[in-house]
Every structure is written in C-alpha cells, then in structure tokens.
Design a protein around this nucleic acid. Sequence first.
DNA 1: TTTCCAATTCGGAATGACTACGATTTACTC
DNA 2: GAGTAAATCGTAGTCATTCCGAATTGGAAA
Lengths: 139, 139
Amino acid sequence: MNFDIAMERLKSEGFKRTPSREAILRLLEREDRYLSAGDVRKALADQHPKMSQDTVYRNLSSFSEMKILEETELGGERKFRMHCNRHGHHHHFICMECGRTEELDVCPMEQVSRALPSFVIDDHKFEVYGQCPDCRTAG
Amino acid sequence: MNFDIAMERLKSEGFKRTPSREAILRLLEREDRYLSAGDVRKALADQHPKMSQDTVYRNLSSFSEMKILEETELGGERKFRMHCNRHGHHHHFICMECGRTEELDVCPMEQVSRALPSFVIDDHKFEVYGQCPDCRTAG
DNA sequence: TTTCCAATTCGGAATGACTACGATTTACTC
DNA sequence: GAGTAAATCGTAGTCATTCCGAATTGGAAA
Ligand SMILES: [Mn+2]
Ligand SMILES: [Mn+2]
Ligand SMILES: [Zn+2]
Ligand SMILES: [Zn+2]
C-alpha cells in the first residue's frame, strides 16, 4: 500500500484529510518497517512538534482497523507498518535490530484446522524474529 | 511438568523453597492454562492476601527463564502456564475465553529457514486463537 | 465565500502493567 | 541457635496507552 491509496481509503470511509494523518502515513510509507507510536512521535518531532500522543495513537489504531496498516506487538509495545502490497494472507520475518520485514509465504493453518476440527479458530499469529542480511553485515 | 518436578528444579538451581513459590506453582499446575500475574494474585488472594506483586512478577519471570513455565503475551499482558510435559518443540491453540491450550505439532520453521538462507533466525512465535470445544458448548 | 458543526486535535491527567528499591523477614547452612 | 544471603513486603516510580474536556479545523452546505 502507498500513501495515495491510503488517503483514498480514508476519504472513502469518511475520514478527514488532516496534516497529522498525512505526516504519519508519509512516514510509514517511507520507513517501510515496524514503528511504535513513540517512534512515530520522535520521527515527526521536527516537522510536527505539537502533534499530541493522543493523535498518534488514535490514528495508528484507526489505520490498523481499516487495514491500511499491519500491526503486531513486540516487547510489550504495539508496532505498525504500512500494509504490504501483496494480495492475500501472509506472515513476516521481522529484524529485531532495524524492524525491517520480509514477507513469508509459509502458513501452516490448513494443517492446524484439520487437526482441530472441534475448535473455533478465529485468528493466528506467526512471526519469525532475527537479523536481516543488512544488519548482519553491519554488525 | 508437575509441581514436584518444578520444586526439584528450583532446588537444583539454588532457589529456596518458600510458601509464595509453592502457592504459585500449585496454582499453575492445577489451572493448566495461561494466567496473568494479576490472575495469579487474585487466585491467591484468599490463602495469601499479603503476597506482594513484586513477589508474583519476580517468581513468574524466574520460573519462565528456567523453563518451568511457558510464557506468551496476549492483549498487552504477559501470561504464564506450567510447561507442557511433551518433549521438544511445539506450539499452542489458546482459547480466548478460558485460556486453556491445545498443543500443536505443526511448525513451519524448516520451510522458513530454507526460504531465508541469508537471514539469522533467532526465534519465532506461532499461536492459534479461538474458542475451545468446552467454551463453544457453554456459549 | 462565509457559516456551521461534527470530526479532529491538543494538553494534560488517569490508568494499568510492570519494575525498582530500601527495609524487613525468612530459608537454609553451620 | 546464630549467621547470612535470598526472598518478601510495601510502596513509589516508570512507561505505554487511554481518557477527557476544551479548542481547533476540514469540508459540506448555504
Ligand atoms: Mn505484510
Ligand atoms: Mn506447551
Ligand atoms: Zn535489520
Ligand atoms: Zn475455552
């Protein structure tokens, strides 16, 4: 997903176009990795020193709910990234140093569904953590 | 894992046998599901009203580090359960109503390792969420 | 263009999980 | 039974997140 498509999505769902929303989405498009609300505030501190934490949290949550962003929880913190372009279901490798992700095609849920016929399955989480090639070289 | 094996493990690693530790481990053995620190405090409020949160958190963390407990993070909270008896690596279905778990044999990490040869893989998380047969019937 | 108002943001206080820490108590060794 | 390090207690602090009332603003309607 890119900035323009995200803004269209907002408009089509009746959200207003505000400087805060533009700045947050532009940042996430540019960074292309998982950022916490605090990361976002820091990154926008120069251009938008008055943006309140309420605004950051509220918008990140809204964007996540409407699938503009992908969200996970790492180290007790919510983290957000621009939703991948790829169609359909996928998971991520996440670099614990820089937050960058690599998309994974693997998903074992068909097997699991078959193994648990009497359970209601609502959701699942599959994430792989480590060091990306760039961070590995740099380290 | 059961209470007695857990106490042996504590002893062998030089930890003292205290009423707090016994109560926490007995509770987790009996419940056999994921509990938060708050859940533990509430459950022990009758028998051990003076047990401080420091004691609960410190011991749950210690037990988790020494693999007496399994730990996960759900809804922004750390949760703990007695480590399964099963040998070797596995994952869980977790009932979002009652916290009970079902062990899963499926793990897609061999495929992932093959797909990401230039990445350092340190860890992964695979969890399935939903409703267990008991809660389904009860609901 | 101006008016209008619900949506949005702001600033700051409240919440809740978790951690830190000095004082006190306790489990184990001798 | 005395000594000592470990463990616990009580409480205060931290940090991410949420809440709330007041002020501002985007964009539709006049
Ligand atoms: Mn993705
Ligand atoms: Mn297990
Ligand atoms: Zn990296
Ligand atoms: Zn259940």
